[in-house]
Amino acid sequence: MGLLSLFRKAPSSARLAKERLRIIVAQERNARGSPDFLPLLRRELLEVIHKYVNVDPSAVQITLGNEDGHEVLELSVFLPEAQRGV
């Protein structure tokens, strides 16, 4: 401390904390409204898909949206390059 601290730039771990929180909180809020079975559904679908295509776990995305007053379950699977058109 003392003289040196006048010139040293303070490290901002608070900013890092805020960034991390912003992301995780947004993610958890998104998941909040959705039914509890979604993660399980995602896992089981992934297992089935895995039998036929070797996909990455992050390639299966399930979202529950609302369109014109109807609940829409949207499932998208990104197939790896080499498998396409097989």
């Binding site: 303070a10 490290p11 771990s13 608070a14 805020k18």
Partner: peptide, 9 residues
């Protein structure tokens, strides 16, 4: 000193 989240954060 940037070590703690602020009220506004």
């Amino acid at each position: 000193s940037g070590e703690m989240l602020s009220v506004d954060d």
